[in-house]
Amino acid sequence: MGTVLSLYGTIGLIKAKNNVHRLHFLGVSDTVGPALMMIGVMINWFEQIPKIFLVLLITLITGPLVTHVVAKMYVRRKQ
């Protein structure tokens, strides 16, 4: 499921008409896609769950943060 979502974001990047739409596709898929992949890895490797959970938290925090910063810089340059 995570791979499909990441592929969706990549296709959206190619098909989107402007930078805001591209950012929307990538922001969602690059946060949730890897998170779903890490949850799948946690199911298979029980002994590594704390480390994978830490990486999952970092991904879920920094993904939207980076997307917000990029969007804010895009809006500032546009003005």
Score class of each variant (00 low, 15 high):
M1H: 08
M1T: 08
T3G: 10
V4R: 03
L5E: 00
S6Y: 02
S6I: 15
S6V: 14
S6N: 07
L7T: 09
Y8T: 14
Y8S: 09
G9K: 03
T10G: 10
T10V: 12
T10I: 08
I11Q: 01
G12L: 03
L13Y: 08
I14W: 10
K15I: 05
K15T: 06
A16N: 02
A16L: 02
K17H: 06
K17P: 00
K17S: 07
N18M: 00
N18H: 08
N18T: 03
N18P: 00
N19S: 08
N19T: 04
N19Y: 10
H21Y: 04
H21S: 06
H21P: 00
R22L: 06
L23E: 01
H24F: 02
H24V: 03
H24N: 04
F25P: 00
F25W: 11
F25N: 02
L26K: 03
L26A: 09
G27L: 05
V28A: 11
V28K: 05
V28L: 09
S29M: 00
S29Q: 00
S29K: 00
D30Y: 13
V32W: 05
V32L: 14
G33Q: 08
G33D: 07
G33F: 06
P34T: 10
P34H: 06
A35P: 05
A35W: 03
L36F: 09
M37W: 05
M38S: 06
I39E: 02
G40S: 14
V41F: 09
V41S: 03
M42N: 08
I43F: 13
I43Y: 09
W45K: 12
W45V: 11
W45E: 08
F46D: 04
F46N: 07
E47D: 13
E47H: 14
Q48K: 12
Q48C: 09
P50Q: 06
P50L: 08
P50H: 08
I52L: 15
I52H: 07
F53H: 10
F53R: 13
V55P: 00
L56F: 14
L57Q: 07
L57P: 01
L57H: 04
I58W: 11
I58N: 04
T59W: 04
L60Q: 07
L60W: 02
L60N: 10
I61M: 09
T62V: 15
T62Y: 13
G63F: 06
P64V: 12
P64C: 09
P64G: 10
P64H: 11
L65R: 12
V66H: 12
T67V: 13
T67P: 02
T67C: 09
T67A: 13
H68Q: 10
V69W: 15
V69M: 15
V70N: 05
A71K: 14
A71V: 12
K72C: 07
K72R: 14
K72I: 07
M73A: 15
M73L: 15
Y74W: 11
Y74I: 13
V75C: 12
V75H: 14
R76W: 15
R76Y: 15
K78I: 10
Q79I: 14
